[in-house]
Design a protein around this nucleic acid. Structure first.
Length: 435
DNA sequence: ATAGGGTTAG
């Protein structure tokens, strides 16, 4: 019999699937290896834990932790960093913090630069920006110095909070320290500069990229196309697409969505729709966000029938319309006085296209309509749905905020008659009005 | 020294 290839040969295969985001494949291969009693090592299990984390199944990741110990290995810094990232990406930051503290207190691991970068991302995600920056600043003192990814994370953090100039200072700080910026660094900065219409700085950074021999990637081009689209410069956006193709970077769904958005803002719905066809011709499947932008654009330009056509296409693309899309179409119909069709859309088309009309979605929908000042219209839909206490409160607040006091009082009486009472936020709004 | 971290479209 042929000798079995060494473990790392198997591990390489698992990693290859991870790189292709084929997490299920890696997991099933791992299961096969276990069944066939092919030896696995700590790396193998770390790879699989990571797969579970990417599939939002961090709990399975933790159950594999036991597998490591059972096999006589001990979890290491990679194992725990993977689990920390898993917790953070699933919004379980409190658990992540608890785990991290426990690991440090019990000297279980010595956090390295990857661990700290992961923690910085977590802090940033939960809005603890200043703690994130402080941790980044403390990295010099620790045995692990910040690397390009640490800088990129904090640079992006500054960019997203409107401190582009502080981000630019960090760019020069990192180069001075001998840490090379990469395409991701520039993408964050260019994105922020474009959002602020700082075109001269954008051009300067693009030139800098050339000097440093950093090639723009699809992200870079997409950021530029988005910026041109938002500035109503659709011609320039088209030219960037030509340029990127010339340079071997192929446009993706984001590219064409950004372009479509530009046309929508320009009021050029036909052009936007033709971009949708271009996308399909190139074998790219439009996603929910594409439809969102297009439907929004159609409604804004009083082309409700086109919006409804797009809505009806969504199931054929395997997509379910979101409640935001439905709300936008209803607003479009209400706006031009097509009330009867709006009711029909709500009662028939939405359920037929996979939108579940439970009380939660109905509440979201009514809340959105009230926010856009379609209060009377929201009430007309309310009469053909099941109302619960949350919905009553939403509508009453909507009435009060839009000065529809008579309607609000009718609802209040109706609600009381049903034995439902106003919640805190509705009560305080009523109190404010009485003052 | 095989495994873990960062960027784009409303």
């Amino acid at each position: 019999m042929m000798p079995l290839p060494p473990v790392d040969r198997f591990n390489r295969v698992l990693v290859a699937f991870v790189e292709m985001k084929e997490y299920f494949v890696s997991i099933s291969l791992f299961k096969d290896m276990c069944v066939l009693a092919i030896p696995v090592d700590r790396c193998t299990i770390n790879i699989i834990i990571n797969c579970f984390c990417h599939l939002n199944e961090v709990d399975y990741g933790f159950s594999l932790l036991g597998g490591i110990i059972k096999r006589g290995f001990s979890p290491n810094v990679v194992t725990y960093t993977t689990l920390l990232r898993g917790l953070i990406s699933q919004g379980k930051s409190v658990e992540a913090e608890r785990l991290f503290k426990k690991l440090v207190v019990f000297n279980e691991i010595k956090p390295d630069v990857v661990t700290l970068n992961t923690i910085i991302v977590g802090l940033r995600k939960t809005g603890h920006t200043s703690i994130a920056v402080r941790l980044f600043r403390s990295m010099d003192m620790e045995s692990c110095a910040p690397d390009a990814i640490s800088y990129n994370t904090v640079i992006d953090c500054f960019c997203k909070h409107g401190y582009v100039d502080r981000a630019l200072i960090l760019l020069y700080e990192m180069t001075k320290k001998g840490i090379s910026p990469n395409v991701i660094t520039y993408n964050s900065l260019i994105h922020a500069l474009c959002n602020l219409d700082r075109w001269a700085d954008t051009r300067r950074l693009l030139r800098e990229m050339v000097i440093r021999n950093i090639s723009p990637d699809v992200y870079t081009y997409n950021v530029l196309i988005n910026a041109y689209g938002k500035a109503r410069k659709t011609k320039d956006a088209e030219n960037v697409i030509k340029l990127m193709i010339q340079r071997g970077q192929y446009p993706d769904v984001v590219t064409y969505t950004a372009l479509m958005h530009g046309y929508c803002l320009h009021g050029d719905i036909n052009e936007a729709l033709s971009v949708l066809n271009t996308m399909r011709r190139k074998g790219l499947s439009p996603n929910t966000r594409c439809y969102n932008i297009l439907i929004y654009g159609c409604c804004k330009n009083l082309k409700v029938d086109e919006a409804i056509d797009l809505f009806q296409d969504m199931p054929f693309e395997g997509l379910t319309p979101t409640i935001e899309i439905c709300s936008r179409i209803l607003q479009g119909l209400f706006h031009v006085g097509r009330h009867f069709e709006a009711q029909k859309f709500f009662k028939e088309m939405m359920p037929n296209h996979g939108v579940t009309l439970d009380t939660e979605t109905c509440n979201t929908l009514l809340h959105d309509l009230c926010r856009k000042r379609y209060v009377v219209e929201a009430l007309s839909l309310f009469h053909i749905m099941e109302g619960d206490d949350v919905i009553y409160n939403t509508l009453i607040r909507g009435c009060l905020q839009n000065k529809k006091y008579k309607e609000g009082c009718v609802l209040l009486d109706e609600m009381h008659a049903r034995g439902i009472s106003a919640d805190n936020s509705t009560t305080s709004m009523l109190m404010d009005l009485l003052k």
